[in-house]
């Protein structure tokens, strides 16, 4: 099967790769571009560990073909910190012990960031339903939800 040349922008950097049309965006990020921060937990869109932003929209990168990335803007966990400065969500996740194994963490952080951009002051229930597609098996979600709410509070204060 012949491969297709794809030019796209990942975390602000122009990149190109050759993709088999059967490969998912997740495969291409991980195996073509070496961006292994996005994880595959299910390959069916049920766990959210592969969450990325595609032209700003939160998606499962396992449900996007690599060739669909042509001409798009992609944001992954690797682009979340500003250089050495962590995003408040990243800091709060460490502070609140909101990760145990850490495997679901990149996807949850990417998803939570998308939530807070849309809704800077979510309720606990809104956070829970927004993150319902991000499975975590270690924490029981308690500390994750607290970390997101605390990061939101801090970001509102900074914005004010």
């Amino acid at each position: 099967m012949s491969k297709i040349h794809v030019t796209t922008v990942v975390n602000g950097d122009a990149v190109e790769f050759l993709a088999d049309p059967r490969e998912t965006l997740l495969d291409c990020l991980r195996d073509r571009l070496g961006l292994t921060g996005s994880k595959e937990g299910c390959g069916t869109g049920d766990c959210g560990a592969c969450s990325v932003r595609l032209d700003g929209t939160l998606v499962c990168s396992c449900l996007v073909l690599g060739v669909e990335a042509e001409g798009k803007q992609i944001e992954t966990i690797e682009g979340m910190a500003d250089g050495a400065t962590l995003h408040p969500l990243q800091r709060k996740f460490i502070e609140h012990a909101a990760l145990q194994c850490g495997f679901c963490t990149p996807g949850i952080l990417v998803a939570a960031k998308a939530l807070l951009e849309r809704n800077p002051d979510p309720t606990e229930e809104e956070v829970r339903f927004w993150l319902a597609g991000n499975l975590c098996r270690c924490t029981g979600y308690d500390k994750i939800i607290r970390a997101v709410l605390d990061a939101a509070a801090e970001m509102r204060q900074e914005a004010a």
Partner: peptide
């Protein structure tokens, strides 16, 4: 936790 930074930045290396 000492491995926190790696795990919130996607740098931590898992099996795959």
């Amino acid at each position: 936790r000492p491995d926190g930074l790696d795990k919130v930045t996607g740098r931590a290396r898992y099996g795959a």
